[in-house]
Every structure is written in structure tokens, then in C-alpha cells.
């Protein structure tokens, strides 16, 4: 097999648009809609969108977003004082809600 881009270009899975709608989450549907309406660059091919779908976090990977994370310790301290709750701090080298 060649490089990643060459493999992508060989992909033909987008021929049937009806299959497309069944397997994509809302964000990718939006991307496809944008492509069809010209809102997104014509440079981005249907094959590209298949890869976009693979890269964007899946629903289970976004479950942590259900928690109301603050990113400012002082703001969290103010809220804790106001609401009468303890503070939970997750601290990492590199932001824990960002890099892996």
C-alpha cells in the first residue's frame, strides 16, 4: 500500500449517498450537507469526509464533556465559596482536557 493519502484517494465508499447518512453522526452529516451546498471547500472530497469522521471524537469519547469543567482555578474557587461545594481539581502536565 502507498501513503495514507493515496489509500484515501482509492476509497470508493461514497458512491451510495444513502449509506452515508446511515453511518454518520450529526457533525459529519453537517459536513456532508455543507459539502453538497458548496459551503465547504470543493477541495474536501467525499473520501476526505470519511477520514474526517474517523478523526473527530466519537460520542463515547465525548462523555466527559457532560461534566461542567472549569479551566480557571480562581473561578472554580469563587464558585465553590458561593455554592458551598468542595473543589475537584484534575491537574496534568499538558492540559488534561486537551492533549492525550
Amino acid at each position: 500500500m502507498g501513503g495514507a493519502w493515496e489509500v484515501l484517494l482509492r476509497r470508493q465508499a461514497f458512491e451510495d449517498g444513502s449509506q452515508l447518512w446511515g453511518c454518520y453522526d450529526d457533525r459529519v452529516k453537517l459536513l456532508v450537507t455543507m459539502l453538497c451546498t458548496g459551503a465547504i471547500s470543493a477541495q474536501m472530497t467525499p473520501g476526505d469526509l470519511m477520514v474526517v469522521k474517523e478523526i473527530i471524537p466519537k460520542a463515547e469519547e465525548k462523555a466527559w464533556q457532560e461534566i461542567d469543567w472549569k479551566v480557571d482555578l480562581w473561578e472554580a474557587r469563587q464558585k465553590a465559596a458561593k455554592t458551598g461545594k468542595p473543589i475537584y481539581l484534575w491537574e496534568m502536565d499538558g492540559h488534561p482536557l486537551g492533549c492525550v
Binding site: K70, V71, A80, K85, P86, I87, Y88, L89, W90, P96
Partner: peptide, 14 residues
Amino acid sequence: LLLEKFVTVAGDDW
């Protein structure tokens, strides 16, 4: 538990 009982914050130690 976190949503109901805590104020949650995340930070970059750098």
C-alpha cells in the same frame, strides 16, 4: 457525583 457534589476544574501544571 461530580455534577451534584463538586465544583470541577482542570488545569495545566506547566
